[in-house]
């Protein structure tokens, strides 16, 4: 874990509300695992006050570069997305537990909702580079075609890519969880693993689908954070019985959890 002030080396407006930032952060590029995140200070003043968490999308240890994908939803993300090359950010990271890599021979499903695609792109890269063979399928859901940010980055790292839009503007129509359920109907003799990141209702649906299909499922959660390092207990989610602790910290115990470790009934939206 480091507290650094890396500089932005490039900025790309991917969609009207998504910006891809490339930062020079060699320590992070070397240390980060897919699914880990950075806690970014978004203002030098007192308002907005708290840091904001952002996933590490991709790392390039050889050049020391890392990529973030930022969706503008409020003042904090707006400030991050407005960063220009040369500007630097105060970051803490890499934080949390990332995705465990599926063993060789397994069939993998990467399921992204909106900006939740970010950590899954890094995961696709890590799975592709890991020793052995894996069959990687990806499904990317968004409200409409223009919000499928960086979809090519995901598609090019997988054997099959499926776009799913709620308005049917491209790909399959409906919810990405429904598309996943359809994929899982095809039998597969080996091990299957689902990795999902997106809004809570999507993750809840996918946890249920994974449970029903008896497929190992990992979800990456988003919660408001205070410290980001496990100290304040502000970011907790309910743990499934028979965990010793009633609550788990998204920042420290997660953000990636086995879906079976969580109490989805008591999950806040």
């Amino acid at each position: 874990m480091f507290n650094l002030t890396p500089t932005v080396v490039s900025r790309e407006q991917v969609t009207p509300v998504h910006v891809r930032l490339r930062l020079s952060a060699p320590e992070i590029a070397l240390a980060a695992l897919p699914g880990q995140f950075l806690h970014l200070r978004v203002s030098a003043a007192c308002d907005p006050l708290l840091r904001r968490p952002f996933s590490i999308m991709l790392t390039e240890p050889a050049t020391g570069l890392i990529d973030l994908l930022v969706q503008v939803v409020g003042r904090g993300s707006e400030a991050v997305a407005a960063a220009m090359p040369g500007q630097s950010f105060d970051i803490i990271g890499p934080l949390g537990h990332g995705f465990p890599l599926a063993p060789s021979g397994s069939q993998v499903f990467l399921v992204a909702g909106g900006v939740g695609v970010a950590p899954l792109i890094g995961l696709a890269e890590a799975l592709a580079e890991a020793p052995g063979e894996r069959e990687i399928f990806s499904l990317f859901g968004a409200r409409t075609e223009s919000l499928l940010c960086c979809w090519l980055e995901l598609a090019e790292r997988c054997v099959e890519f499926t776009a799913v839009t709620e308005d049917g503007s491209i790909g399959e129509t409906g919810l990405v969880s429904e598309a996943l359920a359809r994929r899982l109907q095809a039998p597969f003799p080996g091990k299957r693993v689902i990795y999902a990141c997106g809004p809570m209702p999507m993750l809840t649906a996918i946890a249920a689908i994974g449970r029903e299909a008896d497929v190992e499922t990992y979800v990456s959660l988003e919660r408001w954070m205070g410290c980001g390092v496990g100290a304040c207990l502000g970011c907790v989610v309910p743990a499934a019985a028979p965990s010793v602790e009633r609550y788990l910290r998204v920042c420290k115990d997660g953000p990636v959890f086995p879906a079976t470790a969580l109490d989805w009934e008591a999950m806040p939206r």
């Binding site: 205070g226 970011c235 907790v236 609550y247 806040p268």
Partner: peptide, 9 residues
């Protein structure tokens, strides 16, 4: 402790 959400800005 209390159920989440537990903090906001």
């Amino acid at each position: 402790g209390n159920p989440p959400p537990r903090l906001c800005e």
